[in-house]
């Protein structure tokens, strides 16, 4: 299909292709909408809610909502920015995030979002939950203290790796990520090269033996905020 769909994001006209989500069309147009649970190449789960935008006045998740002609999308309103900040705060206080010794620091998408939003300190009280570590596997480990329950590993393992190693158990605030064996990760055929490991946006599902391999200053988000690559695209185009 070659027809294009025209809609607006914060009053600016954006074009996309039929079947695209708001997020896909926005990315292509160089407009950054924050996201966490939507992994590159993975089906949207719509669980983190960080990508919430207003579509014709109603809240929707940009990562899943299909675009249509004439649609009016609000993205960077003061209200939405506050809500998104609040959600990021919630993810921090819900877990135990000790960035100073986390191997994912500097490439963690949660941390990067907090930096981008200029969050110096979460506004909510910390919960300090007790969570389990799974180091049973020789090459991969799960540090649940840092899990943000995004479910990217679930999708990646099922749809990309074809392994179905991860799923959630429990519900509500008891919900946690689990693996397909009563013996922990070592009872599964997980591998460090699994897409699931790569998909984890934080330092929860990590390869062993990698450590702090990239020096501070050269890590993914050390120099420029998350989303800059998408926005750069737009600047370049505008300069053409």
């Amino acid at each position: 299909m070659s027809e294009t769909i025209t809609f607006t994001i914060d009053g600016v006209e954006v074009q996309g292709a039929p079947g695209q989500t708001i997020l896909e069309a926005a990315d292509a147009a160089g407009v950054y909408i924050p996201r966490l649970c939507k992994g590159e190449g993975l089906a949207p789960r719509t669980s983190c809610r960080v990508c919430t935008v207003m579509v014709n006045g109603r809240p929707q998740t940009a990562c899943s909502y299909p675009i249509s002609d004439g649609m009016v999308v609000e993205n960077e309103t003061e209200e939405l920015m506050t809500f998104r900040k609040n959600i990021i705060d919630m993810l921090f206080i819900e877990g135990n995030h000790y960035c100073m010794f986390c191997e994912a620091s500097g490439r963690c998408e949660l941390q990067a979002l907090a930096y981008r939003f200029g969050i110096n300190a979460p506004k909510y009280p910390f919960m300090y939950p007790k969570r389990e570590l799974d180091t049973s596997h020789p090459d991969v480990y799960i540090e649940r203290n840092r899990c943000i329950l995004c479910g990217r590993c679930v999708n990646a393992s099922r749809d990309e790796d074809g392994k179905g190693i991860f799923e959630f158990i429990g519900r509500g605030s008891e919900k946690k990520i689990a693996v397909d064996s009563s013996r922990g990760l070592s009872g599964t055929d997980a591998a460090a090269a699994d897409k699931a490991v790569e998909a984890c946006p934080v330092g929860s599902l990590l390869p062993k033996h990698r450590g702090y391999d990239i020096p501070v200053g050269r890590r993914a988000y050390d120099a420029a905020p998350i989303g800059s690559d998408i926005e750069r695209h737009r600047k370049e185009r505008n300069n053409e």
Binding site: H97, C99, C102, Y115, G118, N120, V216, A223
Partner: peptide, 10 residues
């Protein structure tokens, strides 16, 4: 305002 390059948790 803390500039981005000095904004860090680690």
């Amino acid at each position: 305002e803390i500039p981005y390059e000095y904004m860090r948790y680690d």
